[in-house]
């Protein structure tokens, strides 16, 4: 079992309509499928292939990731906050696993 841990940085509060910067990082080996082990066998590809962020059910960003994305994929982007609510972050692994995290944000 991989030790996958998502980490997300979202401000605790924002004014209505404000644009905030969100930073996300997930610990994941992102095995590219290009490397070989010491016996010369190719290590199979095992990456996070998609990341999405939604706010109160509305999409903020949807990212498709390829093997060229670094280990522990870090993604930074901006989001508009029209009202108080919850950001939902989802990472999709090649092996079918889904990792989730969420962060509440208040208006004030």
């Amino acid at each position: 079992m991989k030790n996958v841990k998502p980490r997300v940085k979202v401000p605790k509060s924002a004014s209505a309509g404000e644009v905030i910067t969100i930073k996300t990082l997930i610990s994941h080996p992102m095995e590219s499928g290009q490397r070989k082990d010491k016996d010369g066998k190719v290590i199979p590809r095992e990456i996070i292939n998609r990341f999405t962020c939604d706010f109160n059910g509305e999409n903020v960003i949807d990212v498709t990731l390829d093997p060229a994305v670094s280990t522990n994929p870090y993604i930074e982007f901006d989001a508009k906050v029209p009202e108080a609510g919850e950001f939902k972050f989802t990472w999709y692994d090649d092996d079918g696993s889904i990792y989730e995290d969420s962060k509440k944000i208040a208006i004030g």
Binding site: D54, I61, P73, F77, D78, K80
Partner: peptide, 15 residues
């Protein structure tokens, strides 16, 4: 990167 209706800007950073 596909930007949804709530994207604050059409910009993103990645490693």
């Amino acid at each position: 990167f596909k930007f949804g209706p709530l994207a604050g800007s059409q910009a993103a950073s990645i490693r």
